[in-house]
Every structure is written in C-alpha cells, then in structure tokens.
Amino acid sequence: MHVDLRDSQFLVVGGSSGIGLAVATAAAAAGAAVTIASRSQAKLDSALAGLGPAATGRQLDTTDLASVEAFFAGGAAWDHVVISAAQTTSGSVRKLSLSEAHATMDSKFWGAYHVARSAKIRDHGSLCFVSGFRSVRPSGNTVLQGAVNAALEALSRGLALELAPVRVNAVSPGLIATSLWSGMSQTDREAMFASTAERLPVRRIGNSSDVANAVLFLACTPFATGSTVVVDGGGTIA
C-alpha cells in the first residue's frame, strides 16, 4: 500500500523511543509533519536528531491531566494522533503492589484516556492506541497488562462511535524487540527471543517497524474505524 501523508500533521505521544519512534520515523518518511511527545527532553533530543529538520518535539506527561489539557489548548487540529507512551510493571496480581498496579494503569490506560479526551483531531482524521496481544492471550504473569490492553481496545471501539467522523483504532503488538527489554542480560534476552520465535508461526520476533506499518495502514485507510489490528506473529493462535 502506498502511504502518502504529505500535508498532514502527525502527533506521536511516546514517540521518542521504541514503537513510537518507529511510527514517527515511518510517518516522516511518508511526508507528514511529525511531532513527538515524551516526558524526557533527553530522549526527545536524541530522537529528533534522527527524524530530520521537519520534526518537532514537546515534553508531555500523559498522567498529568492539566498538562495534557494545556498541551492541546489553543492549538490547531491534528490529522493523526498515535498514543504509544506507557510504562508498565509485570507480575502476578497477588504479588504486584497496588502502587505498581495503579502506576501501570495511570501510565498506559489513564494517560491514553487523557490524550483521547483532550486532543483536537480533524474530521475524518484518526486516533490510534497501541495495546498488546495479552488482551486476548493472557499469561499468569501479565494479568494486569492484559486487562489494560483490553480496556484500551474497548475504549477505541467506543470512541469510534463517540468521536465520529474521527476514526479511532488500536494496534495490538506481540513480543517486539525494543529497548523495553534492555534491563535483561543479553543472554537472557536472546534466549527469550529465541524460545518465543520457535513457537510463533512466523518463526521470528517482531520489530518496531512491523507495528509502525500497521499504524500507518490505519491512518491512511479512511474506511477503518473501531478496529484492532493484531501484529503478533501469530502469538494469539500459537
């Protein structure tokens, strides 16, 4: 599919690293005027160095509703908004502290909710959440992540009705090789990737660009709304 985003204003919340940065890179390559938002100015500066002079960056903490409202106040409407910002903690429900659980919900669900509530998006433009395949394929150690992802996907379907004719969708990745796993030792990380790849029908781990392709597909497909596109290498059926 030919992707042409020339003359469009494209915002990626969480666009300074990982999947968000891959989305921003792909959107910029398709001609969009890209803005990335992140809590970290250092990460913004690093990401902008590779995005080119047409890209801009702004600091934003999505868990702070007042900051989110101020971010969007008075500005022009966006053509496309993608929300990829999240910091989550794994662990079983009975061992994960409530403060960690609340922080996960604040970051991934309520942060996205704040942006969806405040963002100005032009008619027939798009809003896209990044969820995760644990919404439909839970594991005993990622129960909360699965619940948060399922909530985001339900939110996208409801908002597709409430915000129409703005289009609202979600992309649900499986295991993606990003800096999220940098806290693991290289040996453990490579072993996890290899073990997972053996079980997946595609026989490999996902890359951020795989997810970015799906996000741009939804942005550029005017008949797509209320959809969740799963990009998991077959993880939900393996």
Rank of each mutant, 00 (worst) to 15 (best):
A170Q: 04
D7W: 02
G20E: 05
D123E: 14
L216E: 10
D7Y: 12
E162A: 13
R117V: 04
S90Q: 14
F72E: 07
W181G: 12
A66R: 07
F72A: 04
A103V: 03
I205L: 10
I36T: 11
H80V: 04
V148I: 15
A224E: 06
Q145W: 03
A112R: 04
A154N: 13
G174L: 00
G226K: 02
A116N: 05
V211S: 05
L60D: 03
I36C: 13
S16M: 02
Q145P: 09
E190T: 09
F193S: 00
D188H: 07
L127M: 13
Q186R: 10
A116D: 10
D232N: 06
V34N: 03
T56I: 09
T89N: 11
F129R: 05
C220H: 08
L175H: 12
C220G: 09
L159N: 03
A224C: 09
N149M: 11
F71S: 02
H124T: 08
G233R: 01
N169E: 13
G174E: 05
V211G: 02
S17Y: 04
K95N: 12
A32Q: 13
S131E: 10
D64R: 09
R199Y: 01
L161A: 13
F193T: 00
T63V: 00
A37S: 03
R204N: 06
L218P: 04
I36M: 08
V136G: 07
L200E: 08
K95D: 14
L216I: 09
A238N: 11
G146F: 10
V93S: 11
F72H: 00
V215A: 08
K95T: 14
S46P: 01
S40V: 01
L218H: 09
V211D: 06
Q145Y: 02
F129M: 06
L144P: 07
A164H: 06
G183W: 03
L96N: 00
T236N: 05
F109I: 12
T88H: 09
R58E: 15
P201S: 07
Q41Y: 08
A27N: 08
A197V: 02
Q186V: 15
V230C: 00
G174P: 11
V168F: 00
A224R: 02
N149F: 10
A151Y: 07
A147T: 15
S17I: 07
D7L: 02
V215Y: 06
A29I: 04
F133D: 14
F223T: 05
T89S: 15
S17E: 12
T196V: 06
R94Y: 12
A154I: 01
F71G: 00
G20S: 07
T89P: 00
H124A: 10
F71W: 08
L152W: 08
I237M: 03
R203F: 05
P138C: 11
G146Q: 10
M105K: 02
A66G: 02
T187P: 00
A238K: 02
G111H: 10
Q59I: 12
L44D: 09
F10T: 02
L218E: 07
S16H: 06
N149W: 10
V34K: 04
H114I: 02
L144Y: 01
V215K: 07
G234E: 06
T56S: 15
D4E: 11
H80W: 03
V202I: 15
D232Q: 03
D7P: 03
G74M: 05
